[in-house]
């Protein structure tokens, strides 16, 4: 399997299309970080360092810049990297006649699919690690923000979360490359799925939650209606990898974020209660963030595993045919 991984890694890092999409991701990330950095700099200059205490560095990832934050950008466009890495991984080999050559060597069939998947994950991990390190360096030099140990651990967890999320897309891309013999068809299917899952599914979830828990008067929602809607929305979001990633990344990168349930409780508190809470409650610890995020993280990991297992089973069952 090591031979397959080595070959795939060499292919990925030498592939023009991967280098193009990676450069694009890096460029946009730097732009977003630069804009976020400027905004943070402004707040710090105006003496608002207390407001940002404990999360200044992580704001580089979460502060909405021109359009969205870096974490949201990774949620929306990070999948493209996985899709580029995987959409032709099997059918290209099949079409160029190298698959039967590989399989006629003394290696198990699962070593091929596992090797390709692991090589993709390693590529994604290396790309993200490089990106995060560069942004950290930018934070140090450009904004003068030194990350605390807590922030670095949170960033590492976010990196892990991103690998799991992009692993789902990689599994999906490999699955398409097994299902479709034509590379063009699998590319089209990958693009269609990306658009649906990332852009349309959130709209469908919103509509679904509204249908399950409608508001009598949307302008003035009642507390009970708001609770029902939020719960319905949360349950439906469990079916969306992008939604799970967004929720989990907010939780990991922002110590003051408490998830929809707690946010709802706070919203329903009296004004005095909210004031008291804000006075006495700071950011939550990494452990607490992890506990809150764990169910979402596990479901996201299940999505990734499921996509890979489907690819695996389908690939193992497919026969090499003469025609």
């Amino acid at each position: 399997m090591l031979a397959v991984i080595k070959k795939e890694l060499a292919d990925h890092f030498g592939s023009t299309r991967f280098l193009i999409i990676m450069s694009l991701i890096f460029m946009v990330s730097f732009l977003l970080t630069h804009l976020a950095g400027r905004a943070i700099g402004d707040v710090l200059t105006e003496g608002g360092s207390e407001l940002l205490e404990g999360r200044t560095f992580l704001l580089l990832f979460t502060a909405p810049a021109a359009f969205f934050s870096l974490s949201v950008f990774l949620c929306l466009f990070g999948p493209l990297v996985s899709l580029v890495l995987g959409f032709d991984s099997i059918n290209r080999e099949r079409n160029q006649g190298t698959l039967s050559k590989i399989l006629s060597q003394p290696i198990h069939r699962d070593e091929v699919i596992l090797g390709k998947y692991l090589a993709g994950l390693i590529t994604i991990a290396i790309m993200l690690a490089s990106l995060f390190l560069l942004i950290t360096g930018f934070g140090l030099l450009g904004v003068g923000v030194v990350p605390s140990a807590d922030e670095l651990v949170r960033l590492a967890l976010f990196g892990l979360l991103s690998v799991v999320y992009m692993g789902f897309w990689l599994g999906l891309a490999i699955l398409l490359s097994i299902c479709f013999r034509s590379v063009a068809t699998s590319a089209m299917a990958a693009a269609a799925l990306w658009i649906f899952i990332v852009f349309f599914l959130p709209i469908l979830i919103q509509a679904g939650a509204s249908a399950i828990a409608p508001f009598n008067d949307p302008q003035r929602p009642q507390a009970e209606e708001l609770v029902s809607f939020t719960r319905a929305h949360k349950i439906l979001t469990l079916a969306s990898p992008a939604g799970l990633f967004t929720e989990s990344s907010s939780m990991l990168l922002d110590p003051t974020h408490r998830g929809s349930d707690e946010a709802l409780q706070i919203a329903l508190m009296s004004r005095l209660d909210r004031y008291l809470l804000s006075r006495f409650q700071g950011g939550i610890s990494i452990g607490q963030s992890l506990i809150i995020v764990m169910p979402d993280l596990l479901i996201l990991a299940c999505f990734s595993l499921l996509a890979f297992i489907l690819s695996y089973v389908l690939f193992i069952k497919q026969e090499i045919r003469s025609v």
Binding site: L2, A3, V4, K6, K7, G14, E93, Q96, G97, T98, L99, S100, K101, I102, S104, Q105, P106, I107, S322
Partner: peptide, 28 residues
């Protein structure tokens, strides 16, 4: 067993030597 398939494929972006080396690596 060595198998030369009817439409044997190669990695066009690799040299002849590299193609053979990959087969050797797959054979450990």
């Amino acid at each position: 067993v060595g198998y030369l398939a009817e439409n044997m494929g190669f990695y066009g972006d690799l040299t002849a030597y590299e193609n053979l080396s990959y087969v050797c690596e797959l054979n450990k």
